[in-house]
Design a protein around this nucleic acid. Sequence first.
DNA 1: TTGAAAGCGCTAACAA
DNA 2: TTGTTAGCGCTTTCAA
Lengths: 340, 340
Amino acid sequence: MPVTLEDIAKRVGKSITTVSRALHGYDDVSPETKELVRSVAEEMGYTPSTLAQRLQKKRSDTLGLILPTFGPRFSDPFFSEFLAGVGNQASEQGYDMLVSTRAPGEEEMNAYRLNVQSRRVDGFIVVRTRRQDTRIDYLSSIEFPFVAFGRTEGVIDYPFVDENSLLGMRMIAEHLMGFGHQRIACISAPPYLMFSEYRIRGLREGLSKDKLYLPDDMVFEGDLTLRGGYEQARGILNLSDYPTAIAACNDLMALGAVSAAQEQGLVIGKDISITGFDDIPMAEHAHPPLTTVRQPIYQIGRKVCEMLIDLIQGRSLEERQIILEPELVVRGSSGAAPQN
Amino acid sequence: MPVTLEDIAKRVGKSITTVSRALHGYDDVSPETKELVRSVAEEMGYTPSTLAQRLQKKRSDTLGLILPTFGPRFSDPFFSEFLAGVGNQASEQGYDMLVSTRAPGEEEMNAYRLNVQSRRVDGFIVVRTRRQDTRIDYLSSIEFPFVAFGRTEGVIDYPFVDENSLLGMRMIAEHLMGFGHQRIACISAPPYLMFSEYRIRGLREGLSKDKLYLPDDMVFEGDLTLRGGYEQARGILNLSDYPTAIAACNDLMALGAVSAAQEQGLVIGKDISITGFDDIPMAEHAHPPLTTVRQPIYQIGRKVCEMLIDLIQGRSLEERQIILEPELVVRGSSGAAPQN
DNA sequence: TTGAAAGCGCTAACAA
DNA sequence: TTGTTAGCGCTTTCAA
């Protein structure tokens, strides 16, 4: 049986209240009592029951994070790194993190509702935002604390952190055009995701500066996985007059595309250029290393978490809506457009 | 303010006790009351306070999972998949999952102790076991429920799930020997990890069947990351008379090794064979796809979680110690040894 | 079939 | 400086 305040109280011959206050360092307890209580608590190996503390304080000191995933073989390096960021920040600030995975849909919404209503978490971190995002609609409507990683369509009045995808893809466009590429394909993300639009638009806008166009039939929708990138790239490479560059909307798909191109005997960065987005650790160590746009995922995780805790504790955020400027990382997977 | 039992009690003009029993479907409540209570609860949007329930039941209904990670750029596909398995099983059985990341060491042990003593979790899942594992020593010594993924040195009397690494690497050895490889290097895992020993030993035993040897200077210690595999492989390829095959102890390092070899202009599966272990999703989609040993990571996660819940709920396990037989997956990264 | 009362372990307002 | 009391929201004996 774990040691309780009562056990200590009995041992030192004081009331539970006094013991509680002594342990919290309140200064309306005599130094001697304080010292006594502390040493006895230490000796008895006392640790307060979080359950009891939480019930009394009416807080769970817990942050919720529901990862949107499809199928069992979930393995997105992006999420693991984000998770590490959130998790480390949370534990530094004394918060627990409740993690689960759920495919987008009703089940997912139920998970949000259950966690809210049963008061299991004090706030949520919402990742991979959608153009119309029922999670955000719900949390906003009940004024439940949350911070989003990403934006949604329309006017946004909730706190979020996002990277400037538009600019990121514009940089990719300029980079590729600088290499003389004129025919460029895009492997995009599912259109219901907000960043999908930003990234395609960024690419379009970038290309238009040199009077280049990205026709709709040069946009191939991928599912953000390696396999998805691989499959879309195969489709692209089967075209009679396939493009000289492929800009994928995340690194995983870019890596899949690299794989498909190599399978056809193409030399990446020479016969064809392929770019990604995110700069996951693997991007640097792929062969050839991937030209991509860096998002400081771990740092974003920390930041989002910190904002959420501020929100929960009623502090006002100095920055409520943060858009990070991306950084182009040029590596071997992109090069001069082939002449012919 | 959330709806409480008391609110409902007032509305229906009954006692809190009766409401509680009605909602739990006890049959010492009249059908009418039961029906009334239920509809009112529904209408008022009642959800019980987990905090209160937990305090009263003296259970947290929460499973702990502390991922051992080094540094911020944590992105191990292996863990994400395992996490998904554990998480899905947990939520199906009504358990929450408390996840955190900690580098092995004192901080990590403190996290275990804190979670135990503050009664934040009912049990732990211990991953990536070490030869001498203080986490397991600690949990065993206080008889706290846990299930390990992996084994430790010596006699084992705790519940675990593990794959047969020994056999897995033996299969790799046989596979490579079948292709005529005679000089084989190993990129191993940090030696404090238990599976590191099994895998090296498996490789050794396998090779010895054909009277081949794995000298100590052909074992290169990697850190299980892409970069680690890359760096060790570069070292290996710098040897004047480098081996014709590299057996890495996990897929991530194998992929790093592939990258290093390709950088030297080698054709994988022809000039040099490289194998992995785990069969992470990426293994299939790498170029060339990776020959490896499959571990059903997601399923293992589910199983470990299920066992832990059985343990917590006092059921006896039908199988307390499970060793899964591995499956060799032959793909393009391995082939006939080059002649010369 | 129902309710009163106790208690899970803690914090905090108030009184002494 | 300390203790008494109440209460967080729930479950569960015990008595009616």
